[in-house]
Amino acid sequence: MLLIYCPYCQVKRAETEFHCGGEAHIARPSDPSKTTDEDWVDFLYTRSNIKGVYAERWRHIHGCGRFFNAVRDTVSDDFLKFYKAGEPMPDLNALAAEAGK
């Protein structure tokens, strides 16, 4: 069971308090009518699903209820960073290098 840090509550808690919301930083286009069919399908369905370091959304559903983001290595499940929703995506390569991934 993963151990997850909520950047709003500023505590580490067991995974059972949280709900994973899939890949992070996939913004809904501000004017969907202007997107092409291909772009809209990408927004709906295409995810990087990578083996390695990536950013994903979590919600502290049985805590503060807030969404936040985390950088996780999908191979080891190690979390490299937790940050609040709305903050920019960190440099994943730099984080991976720092963690020796």
Partner: peptide
């Protein structure tokens, strides 16, 4: 769902 409804 608005944009989705316009998908081919």
């Amino acid at each position: 769902g608005k944009r989705g409804l316009e998908r081919p």
